[in-house]
Design a protein around this nucleic acid. Structure first.
Lengths: 155, 155
DNA sequence: CTATACTTGACTAAATTAGTTGGTTATTAC
DNA sequence: GTAATAACCAACTAATTTAGTCAAGTATAG
């Protein structure tokens, strides 16, 4: 489990997709301008998201991407792992090439932790994230911290 | 909240420290050779850990580092945040410099998620990690997956 | 047929991570 | 008091990853 800007971009882009696709496919140019992520970088990310069956694509004019499953069935962990694919976490994960016992022990401890984080993020779906945020905004229906009205979001 | 190899190194090093210091300070050279992390990189990490009061140092011969609190009071989140200091997560976190409402919305969603991950990791202490792993090893006292005996760990 | 938009791959720039070097300072032991 | 140890510190470099650019394609709607 890794949590970098790359994963953040991917989750953000999928959230944008979920929020803006009303059964209609959303094209990457739109996500690019809304989220200020370069088109080509989005292409790289969506290529991996598509290969992992998180989104599906429709080519040609009016095409774009759609979620490949209901919002509540797409977990944050799935998205992050999709774009971080093929990055090995620990140099010795079970294999015996770990000279010193001490090193292997701490590696195991890290792998345990990593698994727990993964389980945690696997239980958070993008649907849940969106709902939770909506609830927050309706509960605290006044300005928080600064003076940016909540109502300016959907503009 | 970010989760990179840097944080992994830091957590691993603190775990090594916790496991090897019996009231005696542990010097970085030992951690370096046990964990195969370069000495100078450890110095950089421990400089931050010390400034964040996670460890304390003793200079001179026989010196080294000690945990600055009981194992159970040092959370994984604290360690990771200490070494990742001064890395801003999201370009608009509450400030009004976020042109488009859509961008700000997804940013908020990410900040919410990040907070949840942080809370989660703040509830996991290195003491707990070590205990949990000890339990696992005593419960499953036979080979798992491959054929590397558990008993070879502590050698 | 033409414009749109996905798809792919190679390449480049920027940022972060990791390691190197070469010191200084505090402390212990001799 | 001087030699050895180990923290402390800063500047520099190498390696890796992230992000973006460029230049092709292919499928499809109209």
């Amino acid at each position: 489990m890794r949590l970098t800007t790359k994963g953040r971009y991917a989750v953000t882009a999928v959230l944008d997709l979920a929020l803006n696709s009303k059964d209609k496919p959303v094209n990457l140019s739109d996500i690019s301008s809304r989220q200020a992520i370069s088109l080509s970088y989005l292409e790289q990310l969506f290529s991996k998201l598509r290969k992992n069956n998180i989104v599906k694509s429709i080519r040609g004019p009016g095409g774009g991407y759609l979620l490949n499953a209901p919002r509540d069935q797409i977990s944050v962990a799935t998205i992050i792992n999709a774009v971080n694919e093929s990055v090995e976490l620990s140099r010795c994960d079970g294999r015996a090439n770990c000279h010193d016992g001490q090193q292997c022990l701490t590696h195991n401890l890290w792998v345990d932790l990593s698994d727990r984080i993964n389980d945690f993020l696997d239980r958070i779906s993008i649907g849940e994230l969106i709902r939770q945020n909506e609830q927050q905004n309706s509960q605290i229906n006044r300005n928080h911290q600064g003076d940016i009205p909540i109502s300016s979001y959907g503009s």
